[in-house]
Structure formats: C-alpha cells, structure tokens
Design a protein around this nucleic acid. Structure first.
Length: 275
DNA sequence: GCCCATGATTCACG
DNA sequence: CGTGAATCATGGGC
C-alpha cells in the first residue's frame, strides 16, 4: 500500500464523524462463520485496534480533564493569594478561566485528531479488503485518458506525474501504474486487432493507391466522438518525432483524418502537465 | 446469467 | 525496479 495515500491529515470537520465509530458496539459486519479467513482476521484485528483507540481516547480525555481542573485550581489559588497584595477582580478570574479553557480545547482537538487519524488508516485497510475491486469513477478515467491521449507517443508518466495524477484522481500511485500498464497493452492490442481485421478483407489501399504495407505503424489509436454520437477510430501516425497526423479507416480505405488542430480542439482543451 | 470491460496480481526480462 | 504480457477476479450492462 502506498503510504502517501494515508498521509493527508484528517480534516477537522471530519474528526467527530470519524470518532463516532468508536462508540459503536461492534463494527464486524461478517455475520458469523461465512467469508474468507483473511478478511475475518483483518476484521478482528481492526476491532481490537478500534477498542484500544477508544480506551486511549477516553483515558486521554479523563487525564486532560484532571489536568485542566488542577491547573485552574492552581491559578485560582495564586490569584486569591495575590488578592492580598493587589486588587483582583472578577475579570481576572474570567481571563484565567478562559486561558485554561482554550488550552484545554486545543489539547482536546489534538488528541481527537490523532485518534481519528489512526482510526482512518485502519479503516482504509479494512475497506480495501472488503470490497475487492471497484471501477474508477468517470472523472478518474477521463483524467487518466486525457493524459494518456496527450502523451500517446510516450505514455510513460514520470514519477512526479504519476503522483499528480494519483492525487488528482483520488487513487494511489500503484493504481496509476496499474492503469497505465493495462492501458498501454490494451491499446496496442486494440491497434493490432484493427489491423488484423482490415488485413482480412485483403485489398486495401490508401487513397493514392499505395499498399497498406507501406504505411507507417500507428503509434496509437483514439476514439473520436462524431456528431451522431458514435465513435470513430483514428490511428495516430508519427512519421517523424515531432510530426503527427491521424488516419481514419472508412470502409476499406484509409482516409486522411482530421488535422492536428481539429484534434486538439476536441482533446486539447484540458490543461496539460508541463513536460 | 452471460459476457466483456476493467482493475489487480503475478512472473519474466533487461 | 519499471515494464510487458498473461492471467485472475470482479463489476456492470444487456
């Protein structure tokens, strides 16, 4: 598991919601003997950690309570003793009480934040184990797709870019790796399958009559949305490192695809990462 | 319930 | 170590 995934601090607004889980009787959802060993073990270990954290939180709060009480008693004693040498009014007591209350509250917050953080980490583990696989949501895939399509000539994001993508998508770097790995292979396969299909209806020539075999291997394939809602496959051709053009396949003939600028109107709108 | 897309896992390679 | 390739396992649409 990617540690960075857990590193972000718990938002203060979430803390109480997270801590509520500590008050539950039990979080074990497994209804008895069913389920796999691995999950049961995880669940009981999570339950143990949860109970431990609950006790820790309780103890810390009690201790803090006592400390604050003792502190305010000390302050009051000091103030009372000073009354003999200087005038001390109700406001002085009030200020002292406020100061102690503020310290008390900030300490309380820190404890809660710490416990909530611990709990969250453990909860993520158990959640991960419970639901085995979940498809990424639409936003996530479109972000990844956009990056991939923009770097078709070299769809290998750097470590930095992987982290940015992960953060942007709300997934782990490992998941970004998986996605790009799968994507590279499956796109290549897609291209290969398309070529094979085309080769099957043997006589295929470009507009100028030249044979397919002379064509440069496409380095990528994208699906361009058409006005009628359907999608058209476009092959990406890199004749030279800095050159790019697109080829569409229409019936049994390769046609020049849309120009690069047209493509960019469709795909290029989203901001790019700096290379 | 089937089927394919898709995320994850595993292993080999350089 | 990062990647490619094969494979597994699940999700989700029909």
């Amino acid at each position: 598991m990617d540690p960075a995934f857990f590193e972000k601090e718990v938002q203060s607004s979430e803390i109480d919601a997270i801590l509520e889980e500590l008050n539950l009787e039990s979080t074990v959802v497994n209804n008895g003997s069913e389920g796999d060993e691995e999950l049961n073990k995880l669940e009981s270990s999570y339950e143990a950690k949860r109970l431990k954290l609950r006790k820790e939180l309780n103890d810390a709060m009690k201790k803090l309570e006592q400390n604050s009480k003792a502190a305010s008693e000390r302050i009051y004693a000091v103030l009372r003793s000073q009354m003999r040498v200087r005038p001390i009014d109700e406001q002085d007591f009030q200020r002292a009480a406020d100061a102690i209350r503020r310290r008390h509250e900030s300490a309380q917050f820190e404890i809660k934040q710490y416990v909530a953080n611990c709990l969250l980490v453990h909860r993520r583990n158990i959640e991960q184990a419970r639901k085995k696989r979940k498809n990424f949501d639409k936003d996530t895939t479109s972000i990844l797709q956009a990056y991939f399509d923009k770097h078709l000539d070299h769809p290998y994001p750097s470590e930095e870019h992987k982290q940015m993508l992960a953060q942007q998508c709300g997934i782990t770097v490992q998941q970004v790796n998986n996605w790009f790995g799968n994507q590279r292979i499956r796109r290549r396969k897609q291209i290969e399958d398309s070529r094979l299909q085309h080769e099957q209806n043997s006589e295929m020539y470009c507009q100028d009559g030249s044979n397919l075999e002379q064509l440069i291997q496409p380095s990528g394939i994208i699906e361009m949305p058409l006005e009628d809602g359907s999608q058209q496959k476009l092959f990406i051709i890199h004749p030279q490192p800095n050159q790019i053009y697109y080829q569409a396949f229409d019936g049994d003939m390769y046609m020049p695809g849309p120009s690069n600028s047209e493509i960019h109107q469709i795909y290029g709108a989203n901001e790019d990462f700096q290379q």
